[in-house]
Amino acid sequence: MAAKPGIRCLYARRNAQMGININMKASFDIVGIKQVPLHEPVQKRKWHQGKPVLSAVLLFLIAAGCLACNLITTKDPTYMDLNNFNLPPNREFLFGTDTMGRDIFSMIWSGGRISLLIGIVSTIISTFIAILFGAFSGSAPEWADTFLMRLTEILLSVPNLLMVLLIQAILGKANVLSISFVIGITSWMSIAKVVRIEVRQLRSSEYVIASKCMGGSFFHILWKHLTPNFVSSIMFMVIMNVRNAIVAESTLSFMGIGLPIEVISWGSMLSLSEKALLTNSWWIILIPGGFLLGTLLCITSLGNYLRKNVNQKNSNL
């Protein structure tokens, strides 16, 4: 019999994958078969394997440093030292000073508080709106659902930057809360879409109907029965929203639409970089940006960890 060895090999691999324990050697001998170990030696996984330990630790350090900034900082971050402006990093000013003579090392830690705060507050706002809107749209009748989804699509079609500009103009001068609010109400749409799809799948399940029959209100059902079911599928997007909000704040402040230069955040520190480019002072651009980027990377890898891993099987190719 001259069957292709490839096929036999595939069968063997298939069986090994499916965990079928056939001892081929014992019953007959196949010439030229690729030996596939039927029992892969199971290595004991260490506790930290596959977990973003480094990112978590880094993020914790940055957050802790920002919270305890009074203990770390050597100078008053708002004090403008006009004798020492635009200095490169040296022993007294660890990260140098900016064009207004403020100590960048102190600014990083106290500015980080504002940046992280805006990221968290605006995510809370946007998640709240998204859950309410998505759940309402998902449990509403067909026509209302279509209308609401159309509306989200229309809101999504206005360029984000323009929308933020227009709404910020309505609220007046920017401060920490108004910026978080604006970022929050312009970034809920994609989460709302996911929530809506999940709710549509869940709304006709027995426990929801039972709760409805017993007189459970919309919010009771939403909180007790629906939210626990879809929370895992929006978790990744919520974490990414924190990241996007921090990026949005820094972009807005950099462009001069966000926080004013006196309110220190990583974004408003970078808004001095136009001047820094003229004098080639790299530390004003690279150091706050490096902290910003580091935080974003840590948040992203935490978020990716929460995303479900789909490719568990072996490749067939």
């Binding site: 990241r243 990026v247 651009i285 910003l292």
Partner: peptide, 18 residues
């Protein structure tokens, strides 16, 4: 790729200009 998608656009522009 993950790093590049994390970098804020405006900051990357600044660094490249620099």
């Amino acid at each position: 790729g993950t790093i590049s998608s994390c970098i804020p656009e405006f900051w990357l522009s600044l660094v490249l200009i620099l």
